[in-house]
Design a protein around this nucleic acid. Structure first.
Length: 573
RNA sequence: GCGCCCGUAGCUCAGUCGGAUAGAGCAUCAGAUUCCUAAUCUGGGGGCCACAGGUUCGAAUCCUGUCGGGCGCACCA
């Protein structure tokens, strides 16, 4: 790959300079970068090596640059090289290298852009983890898509990835779910349940759950005490909810490898083990929390609770791991859960909604404490999405009546548009999702614009095939400057994938695809004014076949990028 | 009161572990359609990168403070 090739050239030259004594041995090169300059007129690639290393070498940046440039200039892969500004080394890539890149895309096909850089490192990524109390709604959507795309990206760079969903089936919310299900169960058995009491879940989606329970248990628990049925109904209802959530996620093309149950975690005593471990290191103690400042809590009372010393890790308060009734807090379970995840992975990533930002410090502290700092752990916060329709806020759903479900969104705009749009913004910036805009077929809508580029390429290939010309690499020499520029653009793809994976920012792929699509559209339109630049030229099958070869592989690159986002490339529009 | 995220063109946003003259789309203005999908393309105008200090060869980017917006702040999940 283009960047690898030149990275090696630079490394080799720096080695030579080191052995010649120009550079000190064992010099730190970690700050040396090789990247395309922002301004293309500066060249194809630029390195800051001379500026970064000049101090250690005891040379002026430009003098060191001179020495590097001398050697670079002799390479066949380099067309030209020059020193600019304070000591940047700018170089232009020779055409054969670019054509080689094109052949590589052809050869690797769907594999182009993938690498094994992350080989040997297992990453556990937890995303969605919505409470199993109802259907997936828009609030879950962005985190689900970002998490899934990030998992794809990490796999693409060679990591072993475990996709995990934490099922919160132990708290009071699922007890409420069980009671709501019991109500629907009585309804299914013929009781008149009237209006759903305050505090229970009113959604119609619980009706089939009640019916299923009625079919399974008959009237056995109809008038029984809650203690008799609560756990049974809880488990059954959670199971049904998870089935529903899985099918909602499937609409977005999202799957998890592991579903971890909070209840099972506690049954297995994992939280007790974590507590004992932390107590032995004096990181959990029994203490009393102070009343929080700046907020008046009317029924506040001082209670002694087992507290985790998260203040030692930068949190502003120690955090209880058990409630006053002796049951575990969410944090208590979460702590044990992360400890469990860390057993099977080298790195952990959590995707959370921004409304959980206040709990990041304590869980990071807990993971650091439990793994003694060994597990890399990152929490990625995903900001709110505002749903709009033609600029007006949209809150109502046809399905549930009070919130827009993922099923609604997918039904209206389709999986591909939902996923692409959710990935068009940095995760930690708020975003608007306008149904009208997402469906719009215009330059303003990147979903469409990128798809259109791919479809246009396929259409061109079909048209050429009808006329008997197929893509071929036989006469790639006939490709001109504009074509080579397009290859340069495509050649950046592996780098983009890598940087998106390393920085955990899937949106970079989306922006890159938008740029690549723009470059292709521009190239395509060259033929309007300059007929000799059209892809299909009837009287010149050799150039045509070379350009088709180029177009085909630009299409392949777009397709690969879309695949990383979980979006299918359109064959025609 | 405290914590986290954000502040870049009229609008919506990019900006590569600190790099060269800060970019793109929309909007606006001027153009391209006997032609492979004009659902597209070409060009122009538009900026105190919220503000003030600091770090260094170099800052939209890192640090500190101020202002403005969002989210969250006892045993909830």
């Amino acid at each position: 790959m283009l960047f690898q090739i030149f990275q090696k050239h630079i490394d080799a030259i720096l080695d030579e300079l080191a052995s010649a004594g120009t550079l000190p041995a064992g010099i730190d090169r970690s700050n040396v970068t090789l990247e395309p300059p922002r301004d293309p007129s500066h060249g194809d690639l630029s390195t800051n090596a001379a500026m970064v290393l000049s101090k250690a070498a005891g040379l002026k940046p430009r003098d060191l640059a001179e020495k590097i440039t001398e050697k670079l200039g002799t390479l066949d892969d380099v067309q030209s090289v020059e020193i600019a500004g304070p000591g940047f080394i700018n170089l232009r890539v020779a055409a054969p290298v670019l054509l080689g890149e094109l052949l590589e895309i052809e050869q690797l096909g769907p594999e182009y852009g993938r690498s094994d850089k992350g080989k040997g490192v297992t990453v556990n990524i937890e995303y969605v983890s919505a409470n199993p109390t109802g259907p997936m709604h828009m609030g879950h959507c962005r985190g689900a898509v970002v998490g899934d795309a990030l998992a794809d990206l990490l796999e693409a760079v060679g990591h072993k990835v475990i996709r995990e969903y934490y099922v919160n089936d132990a708290g009071s919310q699922v007890a409420t779910l069980a009671r709501s299900a019991h109500l629907r169960y009585r309804e299914a058995l013929g009781d008149d349940i009237g209006t759903i009491p305050e505090g229970l879940y009113p959604g119609d989606y619980l009706k089939p759950v009640g019916e299923a329970l009625a079919a399974e248990f008959g009237d056995k628990y109809k008038d029984a005490a809650e203690s008799e049925w609560l756990l049974i109904f809880r488990k059954a209802a959670v199971g049904k909810m998870m089935d529903m959530i899985r099918s909602d996620l499937a609409l977005l093309g999202i799957k998890h490898d592991v579903f971890s149950s909070e209840a099972e975690l506690h049954e297995a005593g994992k939280a007790d083990i974590a507590e004992a471990e932390l107590r032995s290191r004096d990181l959990v103690y029994d203490g009393v929390l102070e009343q929080p400042k700046g907020k008046v809590i009317e029924d506040w009372e001082a209670v002694e609770l087992p507290l985790f010393r998260s203040t030692q890790f930068g949190d502003d308060q120690d955090r209880p791991i058990k409630k006053s009734d002796g049951s575990w807090t969410y944090f208590g379970g979460d702590l044990a859960y992360h400890f469990q995840k860390a057993q099977a992975a080298d790195e952990l990533i959590d995707i959370w909604g921004a409304d959980h930002s206040g709990t990041v410090k304590r869980i990071k502290a807990a993971v650091a404490a439990l793994t003694e700092g060994k597990a890399k752990f990152d929490v990625k916060l995903v900001q709110m999405v505002r749903l709009l329709r033609n600029g007006e806020p949209e809150k109502m759903s046809k399905r549930s009546g009070n919130f827009v479900t993922i099923a609604d969104m997918v039904e209206e705009v389709g999986k591909n548009a939902v996923r692409f749009t959710m990935l068009m913004r940095k995760a930690d910036a708020q975003m608007d999702f306008d149904f009208a805009k997402v469906m719009e077929a215009s330059r303003d809508n990147p979903v469409f614009y990128v798809q259109y580029a791919h479809a246009r390429i396929q259409s061109t290939l079909r048209k050429a095939a009808d006329e008997g010309v197929l893509p071929s690499s036989d006469k790639l020499d006939s490709l001109g400057e504009e074509e080579l520029d397009l290859i340069k653009m495509a050649a950046q793809f592996p780098r983009i994938v890598e940087s998106a994976a390393v920085s955990r920012e899937p949106h970079r792929v989306a922006f890159y695809l938008n740029d690549l699509a723009a470059a292709f559209h521009a190239f395509y339109n060259l033929g309007n004014d300059r007929p000799e630049k059209r892809i299909i030229m009837v009287n010149d099958p050799e150039t045509t076949s070379a350009r088709l070869f180029l177009a085909k592989n630009i299409g392949q690159t777009i397709k690969n990028g879309l695949a990383l986002m979980g979006v299918e490339a359109a064959e025609s529009m």
